[in-house]
Design a protein around this nucleic acid. Structure first.
Lengths: 200, 200
DNA sequence: AAATAAAATTAACATTGTTAATGTTAATTA
DNA sequence: TAATTAACATTAACAATGTTAATTTTATTT
């Protein structure tokens, strides 16, 4: 009897996976605007109603992609930074990689930080994971700064907060309001702001 | 013949005003989520299709509220600050008032910074007005800092940018992701971040 | 092979933005 | 004043959306 349950579980997870993969593809491609129950289901190879046999609603499905995208973003950022750099320059590079990822995939930016959340997906675990995402990426480097006496504990704490919010603001203005107007100006602004915050 | 045109113009502007007022009321109340062509028209006392005799589409109508809300926000902020304060403390108070306004009216925050824009409303004049909004509110105080030699020109410029983006990040996380979880924690965080940036 | 359980689909509904056709006033002309 | 026309407003309709219920198809068990 154990086996039967397992088999059923495996199959169910497989189908769930098809829907999740379809959703992820669309989020990375067209973005949130072209995402719909019908378009997801079509891409997954099922009818639209089948989705509701596996997910409570479309918001729940969409929020199940968060974890995967975070993992992908971590890989993306790690690939961007030179591994001999430590401390403040490392933090700068991580922040820039992080920004680059969310500019490349504005749909994922929307999903993480913008899209209205409902009860279900509003499981505050996910929300906190999102909130602390940049902090987790940079935490070891902040530690490095503290142990190497580059920064005092309180200063590091303060800069960490400032960086988290400033990066978010930069992304919001550029992704949602096209300000600054060109990518060049935008990266120059990122540079200035990040360095301004990290400078002692 | 001039008169007839004027009269027509006046009446048209009046009706437009009814729709705009209805939209503004809803944005301040229920927010963007409950906003629809039908709900706006009902509140304005017209049928939903009448709206299209006065506005190209609903997005255009909604974006016509931006200017009015900016004026309102300016009044709100000015009422919050003590008028004997100048320079950095004044900038701090302005930033806090600005934050307070957009926390009080999350629907207006969404309209200004979050909602997807289309071709028409994407008249970059409005977008730039939004982008520079906090800067306009604080500009005279930054000038004050420079003329009184409190800050060097480049430092002031840098801090102005950092503040703009950090304030946006704070609002985005709190309004859209309920992080920090309580209003108390949030205001404490605003305090820390704003002071961190403004501290020489 | 028949009965039953599981999975997937079609049909349907309510809500949305938008347009076209129609009705209803107000203004102009004869 | 009565008929015509222009302006304005409304109803009807469509397509797209999320979601649910009923139904059909497929797989499993007896």
């Amino acid at each position: 009897m154990e086996q039967k349950v397992d088999k059923k579980e495996i199959q169910e997870q497989r189908v769930r996976g098809y829907f999740i993969q379809a959703t992820k593809d669309m989020l990375k491609g067209e973005g949130l605007k072209s995402l719909s129950v019908r378009s997801i289901a079509e891409r997954a190879g099922y009818s639209y109603a089948t989705l509701y046999n596996y997910f409570k609603d479309v918001q729940t499905l969409v929020f199940e992609c968060v974890k995967d995208f975070q993992d992908e973003c971590v890989d993306f950022v790690l690939a961007e930074i030179k591994d001999d750099v430590r401390g403040l320059p490392a933090i700068e590079q991580i922040a820039k990689g992080y920004i680059k990822y969310f500019v490349q995939y504005p749909g994922i930016f929307e999903l993480f930080f913008v899209e209205r959340v409902n009860q279900m997906s509003n499981n505050s675990n996910t929300l906190e994971m999102i909130y602390n995402f940049l902090d987790r990426l940079t935490s070891s480097e902040w530690e490095y700064c503290k142990t190497k006496k580059i920064l005092k504990k309180e200063v590091a704490e303060s800069k960490r907060n400032e960086l988290r919010y400033a990066v978010m603001g930069l992304l919001l203005f550029y992704n949602n309001r096209r300000q600054p107007a060109s990518y060049q100006e935008f990266t120059a602004m990122c540079d200035a702001v990040i360095r301004g915050i990290l400078r002692q």
